[in-house]
Amino acid sequence: MSIIQTLLSNEPEFEFSTQYAPVEDSINSIICFINYYDQIFKESNTDVSLHLVFFDKNGSETGYKKLDIAANDAVQFNPKLEGIQSDGMVAVAAIPKKNIHEINKGGLQIRNKIGSGFYIRWESDSGGKDLMHEWAAIQQFHLPREVHHIGISKTTHNIEHGVIIMNPVVDIKAISKPTINLRVSGKKEIIETVLLEPIPPLSTRVIKYSDILTKFNKTLTDEKSLIIDITGENMSPPLTAEWNRFGDFHFHHI
Rank of each mutant, 00 (worst) to 15 (best):
G59P: 05
F246C: 12
P144G: 07
F16N: 04
A71L: 13
P12H: 09
L220Q: 06
W122Y: 12
N217I: 10
Y37I: 14
R121D: 02
Y37M: 12
I3T: 14
G247S: 08
K97N: 08
L182F: 07
N28D: 10
H149M: 02
R111E: 14
N244R: 14
I31H: 07
K177N: 05
T231W: 02
I150N: 04
L226Y: 05
F216K: 01
S26D: 14
F54L: 03
T156V: 08
V163P: 06
D248Q: 11
V170A: 02
V184E: 08
F141H: 14
E15A: 13
F141R: 12
I40K: 10
A70D: 15
T156A: 13
V169G: 00
L226E: 07
D211W: 07
N78H: 09
G88N: 01
G151L: 10
E11K: 12
E24Q: 15
D73C: 10
K154A: 03
A71R: 08
K208N: 10
N58M: 08
D87E: 10
P144T: 09
H148D: 11
I120H: 01
V90N: 00
P22H: 00
S124P: 06
E134D: 15
A71F: 10
I212M: 02
V169Y: 03
N217K: 11
L202P: 04
R245Q: 14
P200I: 06
I4P: 05
T231Q: 07
F77G: 09
K218S: 11
I180V: 10
K129F: 05
P22Q: 01
G117I: 15
M132W: 11
T204C: 09
Q140F: 01
F77K: 00
K129W: 04
L8T: 11
I3F: 09
N28A: 08
Q19R: 12
K154H: 06
L67S: 07
Y37P: 08
K105D: 10
A71C: 12
I110M: 07
A91L: 02
H142V: 05
E11S: 13
N35T: 01
Y20M: 08
P198T: 04
I27S: 06
I191N: 08
E102H: 03
Q85E: 14
T231H: 03
E15N: 13
K173T: 01
K173F: 05
T204N: 01
E134W: 11
M235I: 07
K105V: 09
I159K: 09
N72Q: 12
N99L: 08
H101W: 13
E146C: 07
T156N: 15
V75R: 07
K173Y: 00
G232H: 01
V92S: 06
H51M: 10
K188E: 15
N167V: 03
Y119S: 15
E43S: 15
Q109F: 13
F251K: 04
D56T: 12
P79M: 06
G247M: 06
N104E: 01
P12V: 10
P22Y: 04
T231A: 09
Y20E: 11
S2G: 04
I190M: 11
I230S: 08
T155I: 03
T219Y: 02
I31Y: 02
H250E: 13
Y119P: 02
N28V: 06
L143G: 03
Y36P: 01
H157F: 11
F251E: 04
Q76C: 10
I230Q: 06
S44P: 08
F16E: 00
G88D: 04
P79V: 06
V90D: 04
